[in-house]
Design a protein around this nucleic acid. Structure first.
Lengths: 234, 234
DNA sequence: ACTGAAAGTAAGCCGTTACTTGCATGTAAG
DNA sequence: CTTACATGCAAGTAACGGCTTACTTTCAGT
């Protein structure tokens, strides 16, 4: 039946795409030659052209189909243990980013020449930052943030704290290997440390013993003047 | 006199180096063709080869001579107004990094193929992080940090806070343009917000009125158990 | 006027790269 | 068995890129 042709075809197509992603991540756009890609895919160079027409189309497909889309589980909608929840989330994000390190760096460095790649590389981090902002809103709703600090907790700084946590996990994943002196904390402890710093900065206080299962309704923090939304620029 | 030859020669050499840096930043190693560099320098292609022998040597010289070395004034040795001092420092660092953005991204993405570039791109940030760590030590010596916080101020987390501030300023400079949603705070306010979050996280308290000109000797914070050094891995 | 360093011009060599064309092979559907 | 499709192989083309050779121009110092 016609599906078997199609299956074999899809098979080769997938192998070419995967090989192209690997070669592109290692050598960049110019260095990802059609010969190298075909060789890495175990396929004749001509097959590449028959499937994708030309190199540009192939690498566009790589960018849109490959793993830059998120595969990190979301933050819980009801915060229970913020420190461990955030740490697990940051750890997963760092592992994800480490795996895509070369691909991300190549794409970022070539954004000027191929600006249409911007959403492809930007969507993941932006979405994650919005998730984190929403999580902070939930922490506040559940009364887990100390809003009576002397200096006050302004939206500008909460956004800054979010950007700092996202940046730290991203930069750590991108560059710990190339400049370890920048990250004196060992890799397995880094995520937890970032999260603790973040929580301290946004005024997180572990709930008092006995205040288990906090509900949003009985929290005095709801009428605080700070309101945050993931899509609101401050 | 013979110096005029040399001056003219240095002139062309400098123009080639500067043009090579521009072309490399825009197109990367493979895209920085000798023809493009020569054209950008307003010089014959052969002159490039006569000066540098081959493309590799030229781009090595670019990496070692160009502006990746620091030009940011250091943090003051006697902290007076940490928030404004750090903000000015971070702002200068961000401006510096923004100017070198493409050069940094290209070099980072090609580190796998040219590992000898690692110190060239890594020295600046590492040095800056060490400066910041030393500054925190000075804040502590001058009694400007609240070390009696409930959760305690452990070196692991101070290092994490340093990494977060450095990462945030770096990532902001690198990627605000390509994904503005990631940084909802306006660029001119971002540095100050990062610094305030950082100071809050490390337990900075503005000195009480009347405690002007703090001296390191009369500070009770000196005998705290936390000791930090810029070259110590924790 | 002569010398010699620095720069330019013209031309080319040789390998690489993207992409094409033409032909043969295998294989499954009808 | 035929048809159609997917793939492979051989060869080639046009352009580009690193680098060289052989020669000329410019111009300060002697």
């Amino acid at each position: 039946m016609c599906l078997q042709y199609s299956e074999a075809m899809q098979d080769n197509r997938a192998r070419i795409l995967e090989a192209a992603a690997r070669v592109y991540a290692q050598y960049g756009y110019r260095g990802a030659t059609t010969r190298r890609i075909a060789e890495a895919a175990g396929v004749n160079e001509i097959t590449v052209f028959r499937h994708f027409g030309n190199k540009g189309t192939l690498l566009d497909c790589v960018a849109h189909e490959c793993g830059l889309s998120e595969s990190v589980p979301p933050l819980p909608s009801r915060p229970a243990d913020p420190e461990s929840e955030l740490t697990a989330w940051i750890q997963a994000r760092m592992a994800h980013n480490r795996g895509l390190r070369q691909l991300i760096l190549q794409t970022m460095s070539e954004l000027q020449a191929r600006p249409d790649m911007a959403p492809c590389v930007g969507h993941g981090p932006i979405d994650a930052a919005n998730q984190l902002r929403d999580y902070v809103v939930r922490l506040r709703r559940f009364g887990l943030l100390d809003v009576a600090q002397p200096t006050g907790l302004r939206p500008l700084e909460v956004n800054a704290a979010v950007a700092m946590l996202m940046s730290a996990s991203f930069t750590d994943a991108m560059s710990r290997e190339m400049m370890p002196e920048m990250f004196p904390s060992p890799a397995e402890k880094a995520a937890g440390a970032y999260v603790r710093v973040f929580l301290r900065a946004i005024g997180y206080r572990a709930p008092q013993t006995g205040t288990s299962d906090p509900s949003p309704t009985d929290s005095p923090a709801r009428k605080v003047r700070v309101s945050l939304s993931s899509s609101t620029s401050i």
